[in-house]
Design a binder for these strands. Structure first.
Lengths: 340, 340
DNA sequence: CTGAAAGCGCTTACAG
DNA sequence: CTGAAAGCGCTTACAG
């Protein structure tokens, strides 16, 4: 059976296609009995409007794009992105939008994807995962093309664009402060990539907590990781010689890796070294450690980003907004009790 | 600046829009110098055709949908799906297709998503993740709507649809056989959900290996899991009383959970209990166990599915195909040496 | 090789 | 409240 058109429905109902269009789009100015008759026919025939035709005529496609730039596509299999994507997809369903996924795997991909996402016709707006230096170009190009955009994670240049993020500095400050309050003296950190705003901000929060208490920041207690479990493991192997009694890791995965390294040396957690992680993704525990950590609302994060984007699309809100989500310190077992 | 149209380019170049359309689509029948002139203008102006207009006129959108039914959306944060999605996205980029993601979170979602995916206009075809009983409806509806479809994972009714899968029975058979060859006598299994074809098939392979060697299948050595680490942990707690000396787990995550449970009882791996897992996802090791496992080519899986779908779309191939990907037994340390 | 024209299936002023 | 008509920006026979 060939697909039905508005015209078919109009003919079968004995009205014009203008009228059918109005009832399809829930517009006013249709007599109740006519509306009902049209709805009946639509229901009976299973008619559904042609998306491209509608997009062409109305000049909006009801689809938004999620762009994962080259810098993050390598880490796409990290459950963090699955959670964010889940929130985004959920919000799209709720608002009857379609979600198009652009995983930029290479420079070539970027060239082929860019024209598709920057021209209206396919997308009404885009969400761009960011935080890396290299992402500035794509953000800039979207803005130039006047495409509505919301950035996930604070971008390096954030003055002219709406983004949603958590307060990474404060959250990390809070994590380290927790360790200080518990009496830890030599607090180290495994921080995130220095080429990312998350990496920088969480390190900044660490420094801030220490210096506020007049504790000297010791460069030997700071090692960079890339958020993966493996990087935490290797970072910790380098850190042990500096004899830390606590570590703030910028991701749970790094904390887990680090704890594994610690245990291999025969030291105990939390007795010898306490740990605070970061993320607290639901069910991410491929492990038996009850990690004290900073919980960030990842799914909510995605939902909020979609809402901000739709606001821009549907209400023509041009103002750049900073949307900051709440975090929470979750105390479990890797820091021990209150006193030591 | 308003978006440019074909007409604008035609005017600026002094040709008709038919000609511009031909060069945009790399069609023949354009004089070389004209083609060059048009291309120059296109390049200079940054023109890109309007996706919806093109879709309407040509009757294909160059976008495909990836549908994750309700049954899998809960497990979406499992890295397995991220890997598949990565392969799919990669193949889409390569073939200049756009990927639309439909995460069906609830029955409501299903109702709102279905009309969008079954009508041509938005999508040229769909990939449906399956293997669960509940997915039959959506597959059936897509077939009725004549929408090109490729199913990821063998569906329960597989005679009239193209799907891509691995040979789960053989792979599991191979895994269990490995344990038998190593001299293990009481081999148990933590199998996948009985409501899924993967769950059933891997269990079937387990039975087959045992009965082929004349080993009695002991129901006490079989416990169901849901592929998660937690389910493996709890399944193992129930299994220990049956005194197995080896376990075939239908996922690596379940194997990891089970090993954790075993270690908590003081038993050793592989000395007391050997383990074979399933999946071998790259970098999935949030753990220090060197797991012997079955490797399945997850990214390739996604790529192959896209290729099969595009074949259907572009070459109008209506035949249902069974596409079976290769697996491989990866021997590491959880089964010990050749003799014991 | 090139262009004029019809048409894809909708939406949206506009007139009544 | 309703319909006729123009138009969204392309593609695609068709005629030359």
């Amino acid at each position: 059976m060939p697909s039905l058109t508005l015209e078919d429905i109009a003919r079968q109902t004995g009205v014009s296609r203008s009228t059918v269009s109005r009832v399809v789009n829930n517009q006013p100015n249709v007599r109740d009995d006519v509306r009902k008759k049209v709805k009946d026919v639509i229901h009976k025939t299973g008619f559904h409007p042609h998306a491209a035709a509608r997009a062409l005529a109305s000049q909006h496609s009801s689809t938004i794009g999620l762009i994962l730039p080259h810098s993050v596509s390598f880490f796409f299999t990290d459950p963090y992105y699955a959670h964010i994507t889940k929130g985004i997809a959920q919000a799209c369903n709720q608002h009857d939008y379609t979600l198009a996924l652009f995983l930029v795997g290479s420079k070539d991909d970027e060239e082929s994807i860019f024209p598709r996402v920057s021209r209206k016709g396919l997308l009404d707006g885009v969400l761009v995962q960011s935080g890396h230096h290299g992402d500035q170009e794509i953000i800039g190009r979207m803005i130039d093309a006047q495409m509505p955009i919301v950035v996930l994670g604070r971008p390096f240049r954030s003055d002219n664009v709406t983004y949603v993020d958590i307060d990474n500095i404060y959250a990390s400050y809070q994590a380290v402060n927790h360790l200080i309050r518990l009496g830890r003296k030599r607090i180290g950190t495994i921080y995130g990539p220095a080429a990312s705003t998350v990496g920088l901000d969480r390190k900044e929060g660490y420094r801030k907590a220490l210096s506020e208490k007049g504790i000297q920041v010791d460069e030997n207690l700071m090692v960079e990781g890339d958020f993966t479990e493996a990087s935490g493991y290797f970072a910790m192997q380098r850190l042990v010689s500096a004899k830390p009694d606590a570590i703030f890791a910028a991701s749970d995965a790094m904390a887990i890796g680090a704890i594994r390294a610690v245990r291999e040396t025969g030291l105990r957690v939390p007795d010898d070294i306490a740990f605070v992680g970061f993320d607290d993704l639901p069910m991410a525990s491929l492990t038996n450690v009850q990690l004290t950590t900073i919980r960030q609302p990842v799914v909510q994060f995605g939902i909020r980003a979609v809402e901000a984007l739709l606001d821009q699309i549907e209400n023509d809100d041009k103002q750049p907004h900073r949307i900051i989500m709440e975090t929470e310190l979750i105390i479990r077992e890797t820091c021990g009790g209150k006193s030591r």
